[in-house]
Amino acid sequence: MEQQATTTAAAPYLPDELIAEILSRLPARSLCRSKCVSRRWRHLITDPSPCFYFWTHYDGVQHRWDFVATNGDGGPPRQVDSSLSFLPSSSWEKVEVLDSCNGLLLLRCCCSPATGDGPPQPAFYVVCNPATKEWVALPQPSLEPGFDDFYTKTCRAALGFDPSVSSHFHVFQLEEEERCYDHYVSAVEIYSSETGAWVRKEKRWYRLTGHMTFLNGFLHLTTWENVLATRRRQGPDMEDHPGAVQWGVWEWFRQPLSRPLGVHGCPNQTDGCAGDLCS
């Protein structure tokens, strides 16, 4: 009875922010179904803003991580433990956030030496989801993460994760080599959470600015030569699995920049610029 009386008289519209609050509590399937309700709802569900990103900043003592919002009030989204207190990091000497991608974080961690003056422990990668408090430590790649003897460095790594395509993620460790006192990318080692293994690919030389973004199944790297270098996927399965990451055969390709990239010269999901470049 009450049901009948009230549904017809229901408040016609809640403001967008409240609809978004409600939608954010739905399980994935109900959320996707809700795209059929109206154009406005579909826009709310697919619109990437307001977006929250992890970022690191240096507070004078160490690098810390925090949230930054592309718009809105700038506060951290609820239900996410931004202090990463779920990690057993008390037994880890050092934890650095290297990258974030669609809700996952890539960390480089290092355990304290077994004895006070013992040899330093090798660093290792951890991928975690601060919303679900899940984390996994990756097996070691062929070169230790964060290795740097000047001639060879593995200081840069990136994370690739697109939950709309696959629940698996990829981690990219770049190997850089010294040439005439400058460092150029010489190889990439890629970890797949699906296979649980690293695969190493040697390739050409690029001098990177350090900005890397994973978008539409590609890892994008900005270089000092004012080009966008992209790890492009190729392979027979591409048609069957649009967006699936195929790293079997690959190549760098150079693309002159026709317009400036997003913030800090780093292509991002919202400006669509990198998407233009790889199409």
Binding site: T8, A10, P12, L18, R25, L26, S30, S34, V37, S38
Partner: peptide
């Protein structure tokens, strides 16, 4: 309250959801 409303939406068809929120189908 949002939790309650999201529970009301679970398993409902788009038509039923439109009814709950009094939304017009503009597709």
């Amino acid at each position: 309250t949002c939790h309650k409303i999201s529970e009301m939406m679970k398993g409902k068809s788009p038509d039923q959801i439109r009814e709950v929120f009094n939304i017009k189908n503009d597709y």
